[in-house]
Design a protein around this nucleic acid. Sequence first.
DNA 1: ATGAAAGCGCTAACAA
DNA 2: TTGTTAGCGCTTTCAT
Lengths: 347, 347
Amino acid sequence: MNAPLDPPKRTRRSKGGLTLVDVARVAGVAPITVSRVLNSPEKVSPDLVQKVRDAIERTGYVPNLLAGSLASTHSRMIAAILPTIAGSVFLDTIQSLTETLAGAGYQLILGQAGYENSREDELLEAIIGRRPDGIVLAGIMRSAQGRRRLQASAIPLVETWDLTPTPADMLVGFSHEEVGQAVAEFLYQRGRRRVAVISASDERAQRRNRAYAQAAVRLDMHGPDGQVPFHTISAPGTAAGGRAGLRALLTAHPDIDAIFCSSDMVALGVLTEARIMGIDVPGRLAVVGLGDQAFAADLYPALTTVRIDGRAMGEIAARFLIDRIAGVHVAEAVRDIGFTLVERDSA
Amino acid sequence: MNAPLDPPKRTRRSKGGLTLVDVARVAGVAPITVSRVLNSPEKVSPDLVQKVRDAIERTGYVPNLLAGSLASTHSRMIAAILPTIAGSVFLDTIQSLTETLAGAGYQLILGQAGYENSREDELLEAIIGRRPDGIVLAGIMRSAQGRRRLQASAIPLVETWDLTPTPADMLVGFSHEEVGQAVAEFLYQRGRRRVAVISASDERAQRRNRAYAQAAVRLDMHGPDGQVPFHTISAPGTAAGGRAGLRALLTAHPDIDAIFCSSDMVALGVLTEARIMGIDVPGRLAVVGLGDQAFAADLYPALTTVRIDGRAMGEIAARFLIDRIAGVHVAEAVRDIGFTLVERDSA
DNA sequence: ATGAAAGCGCTAACAA
DNA sequence: TTGTTAGCGCTTTCAT
């Protein structure tokens, strides 16, 4: 009974792909040198850099960033959590976020939380588990538990599209209260005296509406019952919601002369329905949107709306994260980017 | 000179986070048992499962999926490559893709290729380097080199929003040629005799337009010069582009009676400009969009358009990938989901 | 059903 | 400047 000379070494899968070790062998250098050429070529002599680059070229090697991330504890991924992608007002923000991050070598991973409190917990597990170097919250993280988990993860976090007195970490947004108030005051100046709201049911919209209603009451633009008529639609707001809203509001309150919509899309629906009902905008009814989406200026009548600079928010959020990750002290990691009331023809 | 009893072991960062080993210690089991509880609890006795789950709960442990991916060569990530996020027609597709994938435990990573042939190569490197289990292409991968790299990576791939005779791998889309032809024939049936196009400059739109123009010529709906007037705008198409397009077309060809737009957004702009110019739609001018976006039915006049079921494409793409990854033989990995001409009031 | 050992492919730490 | 060594945190393989 002879013992096996070559004991069956337990072997592993390895999927056969090219690795950095293969490249090192081809180039005739140590693996770490290949790693350096990839990550900090200035630390390697020009001739070795050339050799290694040739070897990479010849072999078609693509570094496994998963392995790199595990070893370095930098994933170079940023997670963006948003309620929904389709019909969302956050797209400009996500777009510029992606662009700015790509420029710095970061990739975006997307998490859709849904507007309902659905699988928020699973989502967080999936995201935190991937160890992103940063997280951008577009809109929401309602559950206190969710917020706690994010903070516990110690991952740099930027909240956007809002201004809260108690940010979890970094923040770039604007005051929804100020928007609501500004719109009410604008409508007052324009001579409107009986204002209303059509709004999606998300929390930020509610806060805008509250401030709007308060200002309206203060300015005596409310109805005989002391209330500001409102119509709520489900989030995200749609043109169909705007149409239904206008019809409902006019039925219950035929004398309203201005409507503040929770998004430009909702406003589009209002304009359509007004046209169908033969209601003159802005003559009889003023319409104000929110967002200043690309199409707002190209409606008829051109939409008066609140411009929110989504691209700026995305870019600032990206910078906050990049700086924080780089260890740069971010002086003022809370930023109010404000808003602008863009007066066009609909109000 | 006493040698240190405890020689300064070269230590490593480790970021201090909780690991599976910590959980195993707390639960009093081997690390592999914790792993099994996480990934295949049915292989572990109920009491140990309970013990481990308690330990996870108590410690707040979140598994490091990066490490898991490296060890298992399954990243549970899918990459979506699209030209741009803002103003894109692919959003419904991405949305349902994300939802379907999330249900199966996959996360989406996003790659914006841009409409210009910009950093396509870097993007591919960043994406393939993350070893996604699958890739979805929304729209494009123009460069032959890019397509070659994708195929070389051997990552399951689904192309969407198109039908090509030579798919790189799997495919779900519709025939842009058929759309162009169908729209031309529809306009003919509606009595139009002098048709035009306003289109973004992307390649799929061009193919629609070519088929549209051919059918128009065949049906004698062209101009005196035998041509179909067209106006090209940059991708992605916008309402502003539609407005400019209508003005330009009417200046050069005052007698056109129908316009096929490369997206509903472009059509919106056309409707706006027509209204401003006092042109009756559909009386004097028929307008047809593409996409049947949510707002299309809520324009005035309600937009006649080509419905593309973006959600279905996302879901099918997800299923293709999930099945392929699971090793299921995907019977027919090329799917034509077709389209529907939705007749409303604008044509 | 449970565990021990051996990597997955890379980079940080240390040494020359 | 270049290389050696020892992991990063997990899962596969093999053994019990």
